[in-house]
Design a protein around this nucleic acid. Sequence first.
RNA 1: GCGGGUGUGGCGGAAUGGUAGACGCAGGGGUCUCAAACACCCCCGCCGCAAGGCGUGCCGGUUCGAGUCCGGCCACCCGCACCA
Length: 854
Amino acid sequence: MQRYSAAQIEAKWQSAWDKAQVFKADRSADKPKYYVLEMFPYPSGRIHMGHVRNYTMGDVIARYKLSTGHNVLHPMGWDAFGMPAENAAMASGGHPKDWTYQNIADMRAQMKPLGLSIDWTREFATCDPEYYGQQQALFLDFLKAGLVYRKNAVVNWDPVDMTVLANEQVIDGKGWRSGAEVERRELTQWFFKISDFAGDLLSALDGLEDWPAKVRLMQSNWIGRSRGLQFPFALVDAPEGFDQIEVYTTRPDTLLGASFLGISPDHPLAKRLEGERPEVAAFCATARRGGTTEEAIEKAEKLGFDTGLRAAHPFDPTWELPVYIANFILMDYGTGAIFGVPAHDQRDFDFATKYDLSIPVVFVADGAEEAPLTEAYVPPKDQTVHYIRNFAGAEHQTGAEAVEAAIAHCEGLGIGKGVTKFRLRDWGLSRQRYWGCPIPVVHCDACGVVPERKENLPIALPYDEDGQPIDFSIPGNPLDRHPSWRDCACPACGAPARRETDTMDTFVDSSWYFARFTAPRATTPTVLEDADYWMNVDQYIGGIEHAILHLLYSRFFARAMQITGHLPAKAVEPFDALFTQGMVTHEIYMTRDAQDRPVYHFPEEVENGALRATGEMVEVIPSAKMSKSKKNVVDPVSIVENYGADTARWFVLSDSPPERDVEWTASGAEAAEKHLARVWRLVTELDSAPEDAQPAEDAALLRAMHRTIHEVTVGIESFGFNAAIARLYAFTNALGKSAASRSVKRQAARILGQLMSPMTPHLAEEIWHRLGGEGLVATTPWPKADPVWLVEETVTLPIQVNGKRRSEITVPKDMVPAEIEARVMADEAVQRALDGAAVRKLIVVPGRIVNVVA
RNA sequence: GCGGGUGUGGCGGAAUGGUAGACGCAGGGGUCUCAAACACCCCCGCCGCAAGGCGUGCCGGUUCGAGUCCGGCCACCCGCACCA
């Protein structure tokens, strides 16, 4: 018997696909198009199992669609700008560009043996000047369309290294290299006006029916539409120009519960006081300590500073509230000022308790008496409560009703106005770093900020500095200290000027790559004919970690590109269907050193719970996301070398549902390999099967075959890859045990190979070839189940008595309920379970179940 | 802290509100073999001799019927705007 050699067979079919150019996407063909895209990878240099899983899922879809008569676009590229390249240059010399392109070459070489049905002729990297030059063209068009502007925003500032830090470079509030306490500092930065689209980005979520509901919900919460009241408090003895403070509240119904005013340390009033009073400056400096993340701000100890100023309550000018500067109030949201209602907001409650402020109760639970609070009372907004300090609406009403009544009342009094606000902030795209797309503008003393001319694009990153290698070991942005790149002539007046040295957020790069794939070599960002043909992405696949930012930014970009004429109107929602896949996890193996510190070990160093080298037992920590630091990684390259690509592909698809995490186990990989070998053996043994058989045997195998075609097809179309694979296991077992005739078995085996082809394409080609299939299975039409074989004549009904299963009967599929009832009541086990009790109800769910209720 | 998700045998998991545990792994028994490997066959949630009882993170609810729906908790995972 021929042994199955993955190494030989996989290489053979990969070159056959190449030769036939079966995966080259071509828009001229007379077929419906299908665009399947997996989120493109960051070129770290090594592919990992998560990539294998992600691209295998996309490949199953792509290959399936190819065999159902679609013109498939399945491209691959590289999300190639970003910090790791600069970090590598900092750590071990070299240049981010060389590091990145070498990594791309390495990863491409690791990916190709997987046998993915990718059109590699469309490949690009976002760090190619041909790509980011077009991105600069988009930026200029957005600028002209009023979609980009500059304003101040806070960054993480390392006061020792004198540099801006990314959030991940801030560890416990300290700079990762200097260890200095980080502070929040304002910088002038470029912004995309995504907030202009907040309402549309929110309402359009309803149309994204093929997105996971959780992603739509997360985006909806992120955009955060709220209805509230904006109104001023008059300040008593205020500094000039600050006689009023605008506040925004979503709970105007609690106005009579106000106990203090709070303003952000970045509020203009705080800044004014900071300049005048050292103690305010000292507090604000304290309040600005720590990173910029919302998480850091929320978790920090809530601190307040009593400015001594007083604000008059709008309903009663003699009621004065203290004005605090508080570190938890964000300047970016609302007006940067709030009024505190400690009785009905836990954060305000904590603050009031800490600073000994009053806690006036506005409402109590219906039927309850007013009593001193030990925590804030925050019932759901749709719950009716009893307003004891009420000024608008009924005494008993829901929070939502009270809010509307309060807004109407205040508008009537001319105190403020009802407004709709969004939590979504504009997208700051400036990065003070080298390895990113340069922002194509020039700063001129005479003309101000001047856009570059399109004919000067791309504004390319300098590789060296006047012949000298760029020094990445100095903190800060090398572009900023690169005179021959930075200093230029103003495109408007020709006078000496300076280039913008900020580069773009890498999220910009990934916000339109899907559109670029439709015309990857064009000298404009897109070509409308191509975009019109290929867009939208029919199926997008990636990690849930991108549920909010990447997808929201891409949705914004699609809108902005439509406005500037780079995408057709139908592409404003660029991803028709989205699938978010789970991670690949693995157990962690650990021993401890002499100081009891953990030492991690790679899976290949461990055998039978002990270190291969020393025999020392390892602690096994339950599965977690594969990470280099914990060494719980398996290298796809060695997996493919040891088992073959088909085995790796089969494994990552089996067992776990695609949206959930999958745990890599060596035994699971071996089981996958064993199964594929078994399928191959069954195929090679067909020649010795008897030529004739009982008609019933043939029918049984054909019935199983058609059922399997049906179930696998449904499984693939609904992302139930694990279920499809379970059906293929069952069908393989059926084929192995079948006593059907040789010709029927050959037919069944050929179908088995075809059904496996999206998952294990190489083995499938080999089976197809051996069993006399024409051409490539990759381009052979997908089999169709014959409905005649799917019909079952009888059905087995479980019988419950009072909800507990007691018996079952097998009856013809279309037996009338009355007859079923009679049979049920005649059943011995039913009578025993009833034990003489009278039957109150008999529920027959046709084809499903019978429940006898006594 | 806030937003979102997940939780089922020894393990990965299956199950339109309708027989909980499909399929696979591990384990046990057997056939083949001088022996092993491979392969093939059978068993396999827990308690119990059995009848039967108990079982889908925990507590409660809706329903003829709940892994599935609702409320409250617990644990873990993802995101929180400069990681990609």
